[in-house]
Amino acid sequence: MQGRELLRQLQQDHLDLRAVREERLAVVVGDDAVARRHAEPGHARSLAMVFGQVTVERIMYRAKAVDSRVVADAKLNLPAGTYSPGLRRLAAQAAARGSFEQAQAAIAQATGVTVGKRPG
């Protein structure tokens, strides 16, 4: 259990350092060719990983009437939902072996993370 917490804390520290060092860009242009010039630092999201929950803070770029863009999410290759690719893979493997409840128990025992029934 201490090893998993150490890995989680190392990942959190890495993400925190990236957030502090993230440079504000003058403009971010999305695939829709719309320039997003308004930058809002400090936007946070939770991410459940195989060794626990971490918080990712980053700059969000906005423009009126279009979706926001987060450059750091793309650089870190973060999934759209709550669960990391590693945790999703573990959930799929555990679910293939039995019921969803058994998979939830196996994931909680292996990682300390409780997954819900809805995709995240």
Rank of each mutant, 00 (worst) to 15 (best):
G30R: 00
Q93P: 13
L15V: 06
M1L: 08
G86I: 12
G3P: 01
G112F: 02
R118V: 07
G42V: 07
V34N: 04
L78Q: 02
R24G: 06
Q2S: 08
R45H: 02
E101S: 11
R21P: 07
A74F: 14
Q104L: 03
A48D: 07
R4D: 02
R4P: 01
L6F: 10
Q104C: 06
G3F: 04
L78F: 04
A110I: 07
D67I: 12
L7R: 07
S68R: 11
G98P: 07
E22C: 01
R69E: 15
Y83W: 14
V113T: 06
R18D: 07
V27T: 10
V29G: 00
K117V: 13
K75C: 14
F100K: 15
Y61K: 00
V66M: 10
D31T: 13
A110L: 06
A110R: 04
R45I: 08
A91H: 06
S46L: 14
Q102C: 10
R24S: 08
K64I: 13
L6A: 12
L17D: 11
A105L: 07
P85Y: 06
E22W: 00
R4T: 03
A33R: 11
G98N: 14
R88D: 13
R45E: 05
D16W: 03
G86E: 15
S99Y: 11
A65I: 10
T55L: 02
H38Y: 15
T82R: 14
A92G: 08
V71W: 03
A44D: 14
E22Q: 00
S68T: 12
G81D: 08
D32T: 06
Q102D: 09
H38S: 15
N77P: 12
G42T: 09
G30L: 02
V20P: 04
V115I: 12
A80Q: 11
V70F: 11
L15R: 03
R24K: 11
I59N: 01
A96Y: 06
T55D: 04
R45G: 00
L6N: 06
Y61V: 05
L78W: 03
V29E: 02
R58Q: 12
R37I: 09
F100L: 09
R88G: 07
Q53A: 09
K75N: 13
I107F: 01
D13H: 14
A95E: 05
D16Q: 05
V71H: 04
T82A: 12
A110Y: 00
Q93N: 11
A96M: 10
R88I: 13
G86H: 11
A65T: 13
E5T: 10
